[in-house]
Amino acid sequence: MTKLIEAALAPVIETGVPALIEEPIRCMEIFRFDRSSAERFIPWSDQSRNCGLFKISCKNASGYAEYALPSTREFADLVRWASVFSRLKGMPVTEAIRYAQKQQQWGSVRMLLAVSALADLEANQHQHISRKRLGRLPLERSFLMDCSEAYYHF
């Protein structure tokens, strides 16, 4: 067993470069924009929808996905609707993508929202990108909070 461990670590020991370890998901935030902000920054929004942004973060990167949900009772309670995403916390991004893709019980809207934000996070991690905007939408946290009528951090 010791020989197997030594063999696996040999490239790291020889080069002095640590093995690539994928960062776990540390936090998630979901913002529901107020009507005027949604109309200003999300061109496909309308009065019959709740629009917002889902953000998933690791240590050095974040991924984003916009959403537009019908203004129905099912989507009214943001915390209840988004609580299923808390299962992703602590997972490495690639594992979280595989997990989210299998969650048909979440419904297609939540599953696609999670996969979209996770794919964006994965791309931003590998390219070392720190975004300032998503389309016309500024991503500064204080700005997002000012534009939101509801917010959930988990």
Results as ranks from 00 to 15, higher is better:
P138L: 01
R32I: 03
N124Q: 07
Q103L: 02
D77S: 11
A7R: 10
L88V: 00
M91Y: 13
V93H: 08
A10F: 12
S116V: 01
P138M: 04
P11L: 03
G90L: 08
S130L: 01
M145E: 13
N124S: 11
R110Q: 15
E23W: 02
Y152A: 15
K3E: 13
A117N: 10
C58R: 09
D34H: 12
L121H: 05
L69H: 12
I25Q: 01
M111K: 15
C27V: 02
V84G: 07
W81M: 04
P11I: 01
Y151D: 02
A7P: 06
R110M: 13
T94R: 06
I42R: 04
E29L: 13
W81C: 01
R32E: 12
A76V: 04
D34G: 08
A61Y: 00
K55D: 04
W44D: 13
Y152Q: 13
R133P: 00
D120H: 13
H128D: 11
E6F: 09
C51A: 13
C27F: 10
R32D: 01
V109M: 08
V84F: 09
D146Y: 03
Y99R: 05
C51F: 06
S142P: 07
E95P: 00
S108N: 10
F31L: 03
E95K: 12
S71G: 07
L88D: 04
Q104C: 02
E122S: 14
K89V: 05
A123E: 14
F75T: 14
I21N: 10
R110D: 05
S45T: 10
V109E: 12
A82Q: 12
F154L: 11
H153G: 01
D46R: 09
H153C: 06
V17W: 05
R35T: 07
T94V: 09
C51N: 12
S45A: 14
P138I: 04
E95I: 03
Q105E: 14
L88W: 09
S130H: 06
R136P: 05
N60H: 08
A19T: 14
L137S: 00
G63C: 08
F41C: 02
P24T: 06
C27Q: 15
A114W: 03
M1R: 14
S130W: 00
C27M: 11
Q104L: 09
L134N: 08
A38H: 05
S45N: 12
G63I: 02
S37F: 08
S86Q: 15
T94S: 09
K55M: 08
L113K: 10
F154D: 05
R133A: 07
F143W: 06
A117H: 04
L112T: 08
E6T: 09
I13A: 14
V12W: 07
E29W: 10
Q101I: 00
H126E: 06
T15C: 03
E74G: 10
F31C: 09
L20F: 11
R87Y: 12
R133F: 08
E29D: 15
F31P: 03
S57H: 00
